[in-house]
Simulated assay, not measured.
Amino acid sequence: MARPRSDDKRAAIMTAATRTIAAQGLGAATAAIAKEARVSNGSLFTYFDTKADLLNQLYLELKAEMGRAALGGLPAADDRAQMLHMWAQWMRWATANPEKRRALARLQVSDEITPSTHEAASRTMAGMGRVLERSRANGPMRDAPAALVFTLCNALAEATIDYIISDPDHADEHTRSGFDALWRMIG
């Protein structure tokens, strides 16, 4: 008979996977993740069929968390104000969660993440996409492929986050400067 699953153990495995992948990369052994989570390696496979399953689930959870953080408290305002809010929330989440950001960046480019998982993650980010699409509708990048615009926005976000981390005393100024560059590009 299969053991009952515990939400607390699953959460511990996900937290451990985030930390381990952030520190060791995607090649980290499941045994290292299990040890960090304080569960047996066999218990890890009670929750996830394979390491790839674990990585795909982690990717989905991290993307969903980032999306919720970016859209949290979104004001009923004009496109620019909504975009600024979303941008600032994204910067706060990323700088407050460096291990999650690092793990997410590694998972984003992993061959282990399936196309269906990438699609599901895109759906979790749909709210962010809608704000961005409305913001660029009349701007200079209105005719550019959406994927290109999203990639450019992400690159600008990553550069801004890195700068905030290197100079946290001026985080608000850097957030605003990054947003001003973004808005000139899309708004």
Rank of each mutant, 00 (worst) to 15 (best):
E99S: 11
A146K: 10
M125A: 10
A159F: 01
N138A: 13
T151P: 01
P115Y: 00
R136W: 00
T160L: 04
M83D: 00
L104N: 11
L132A: 14
R130P: 06
N97T: 10
Q108N: 09
E158R: 12
L104H: 03
R136A: 12
S116L: 02
E158N: 09
R136I: 02
D169Q: 04
H85A: 00
E133H: 14
V149M: 07
A157D: 06
E119F: 07
H85Q: 02
A121G: 00
T95W: 13
V149F: 08
P145A: 03
E133A: 13
Y163G: 12
I165H: 07
Q82P: 03
L148I: 09
Q89V: 15
N97A: 10
R106G: 06
M125I: 03
W93N: 04
L104Y: 05
W93P: 04
H170K: 08
W87F: 02
D162P: 13
G127S: 05
A155I: 11
S166D: 11
E119K: 11
A88W: 01
R130I: 05
R92A: 14
E119V: 02
R123C: 04
R102V: 10
T160D: 08
A96W: 10
S116I: 09
D111M: 14
L84N: 09
S116Q: 07
S110V: 12
A96G: 07
E158Q: 11
W93I: 10
P98N: 08
A137F: 05
I165F: 09
R102N: 02
L156P: 00
E119L: 09
K100C: 13
N97Y: 09
N138I: 02
Y163H: 07
S135R: 02
M91H: 03
V109Y: 02
A105H: 14
A155R: 08
W90E: 02
